[in-house]
Amino acid sequence: MSGGRAARSAENRLRRLLVVLPWLMERGAASVAETAQRFDISESDLVRDLELASMCGLPPYVDELIDLFIDDDGTIVVGVPRLFLRPLRLTEEEAFELLAAGRAAMQLPGADPDGALNRGLRKLAVGLGEDDTGVLVVSPNPSEVTRLAEAAREGLEVAVVYRSRTRDEATERVLSPFLTFQDHGNWYVTAHDSLSDEVRAFRVDRIESMEVGGASGHVPPEGIDVPNTWFADADIARVDLRLGPAGRWVVERYPVDEVSEPDGDGWISARLAVTGEAWLARLLLRLGDQVEVVGPESMRSVGREAARRLLAVYGET
């Protein structure tokens, strides 16, 4: 997957040159095609920037600072390696990206504390002057996730009993898992579903039982990516809440679109993603008098009705 080529500003062209040149100098020679592909740049842009670099010169070394040429069969040949022999230091953004990705991946099922990733992370951390605990990721790993990930890797189907969130009923399905992923502390499996004959995401903690079977015969659809913005999904309903001082933890804990500054009494306004009516009812009951539903109208009575149902269960009115 290539994320679209960045605009060719002077900064971006120089940035790219400063990783391409050390790579070329270490190898001595490489084809234009291979280099362009490796660094995700068009061949014509690459040739243009390399020719420009090879013309850079200062007295007394006019035209000799960067000693390379491109021969007729499209091979880049480096003469005397000079000047840009090593790539630049990692920026703070790059350092964080690697550490966060690595530490998160170490929390995934199957990660090996003695494996290559952890060894690489330790070397990286030493190079960045941080100890092993500065940036940390913690993640729950139910055993079902490990088994689903293995089934995805092996291309096996899995018979499950799944409790649907909306209807609160258990269904038997055969899933052909393609990817298991965690988002906001919850695990999901993206799989072909025998019941709907569609590819869907299922919450792993709603799988009540599972049995791994034989080869699934379903191939992953094109473009099955790790969902990066699960809750940014516009299809998910939103609710506007007013939250009291003791209820403000909600905006620390759940995905929110907007949060206001506290008013004089310490109340804030927030807009939250609502993944279902039952979810909202649970939240409202837990918050008690520390929450007020501003809108939409259809959600204003959810908490009151849930509380009345529950009082009946306790034999109270």
Partner: peptide
């Protein structure tokens, strides 16, 4: 964990 990250790609090249 960070699919399609430009920053991660630049870092790996370095």
């Amino acid at each position: 964990t960070r699919p399609g990250s430009e920053t991660g790609r630049e870092a790996m090249w370095k």
